[in-house]
Amino acid sequence: MPPPDDTELIRRFQAGEESAFNELVRKYQQPVYTALHRLLNSHEEAEDLSQETFIKAYTGLKNFRGDSSFFTWIYRIATNLGLNALRRRQLRRILSLDSIGLTLTSRTPGPDRQVEDRETQEILSRAIDRLPPKQKLVFTLRYFENLPHAEIARIMNRNVGTIKANYHQAIRKLQKAVQA
């Protein structure tokens, strides 16, 4: 017997079958966590916000009418939470004097030159980390999660042109970072 699809699981959950929700969590826990981890570069935050995503889904599912697919919907919840966390982080950087010192220190190359691969990884991780939140989100969903531009547009409620423009800008910044 093939596994039940999302629509069937949602219908069963709405009819009061709690275990259908468990199925949805098991099915989506990995993509949700991975996307959040890519976005936030932190296991703790990804773990916390993954759980929060499913809690919001649990509450919202009762009124879910299927205007979008469950896939789009759960990504939208997760990425909204992720974006807000990124914005809070950015606000902290803007408003906190301490973070200036920290950031400047971390930008200074250490005396020991690491092997080239490791160095590129560090440069790239830092460059990805510095992308503005929405660019980072688009880049994560497109490059790491392999989602088509149109799906990202649905998740973020933007038009495809905007998503593509964000993707281009992100690529250019990363390209500049590795080139420097």
Binding site: S125, L174, Q175
Partner: peptide, 15 residues
């Protein structure tokens, strides 16, 4: 340069 960027990105470990 985009190809080099892509090669670099491929070396990033998946969480």
């Amino acid at each position: 340069s985009l190809q080099r960027l892509q090669e670099g990105l491929r070396t990033l470990p998946a969480p």
